[in-house]
Design a protein around this nucleic acid. Structure first.
Length: 121
DNA sequence: GAACTGGCTGTCA
DNA sequence: CTGACAGCCAGTT
């Protein structure tokens, strides 16, 4: 299965109100230092897709999109899911109340396996 | 197949 | 806590 497909599958399973960082996505898919690659794939998705691209942000809890319109759209979508931004435009990733999604290893594996199976009937 | 391109990241000032 | 920088990686020319 192509990597971009696996990225989309995993991102699609991020629960509403939770987020992952580009680096975490890469790590979960076992792409060492693949954060930037993940970002590029998100970019290719565009905005008209069923993949919840808005739930992937950078490691500092900030929105990374350069295009102001896209950035605003991402923030709007996240806020509509209940995500809170502080005055510096950041979200709390770790600690109490952190919104970083922490799937177990078996969970990720199951997600990928299931997707793999449905792709090759 | 080489070169280019990024929604990144950890590190160091 | 911001800001600059050099690696790193899969897709697209």
């Amino acid at each position: 299965m192509k990597l971009n497909r696996r990225v989309y599958v995993l991102v699609s399973h991020i629960p509403p109100g939770k987020v992952l960082t580009y680096g975490r996505v890469a790590a979960l898919l076992e792409i060492p230092d693949g954060a930037r690659t993940v970002g590029e794939m998100m970019h290719q998705l565009g905005q008209d897709t069923d993949v919840p691209w808005q739930r992937v942000i950078n490691a500092q809890g900030r929105i990374s999109i350069k295009d102001p319109i896209g950035a605003q759209e991402q923030r709007r979508r996240l806020e509509s899911e209940g995500v809170r931004f502080d005055s510096n435009g950041r979200v709390k990733l770790e600690g109490p109340g952190g919104i970083m999604w922490l799937p177990s290893q078996w969970e990720v594996l199951d997600i990928l396996e299931t997707a793999e199976r449905s792709e090759t009937p």
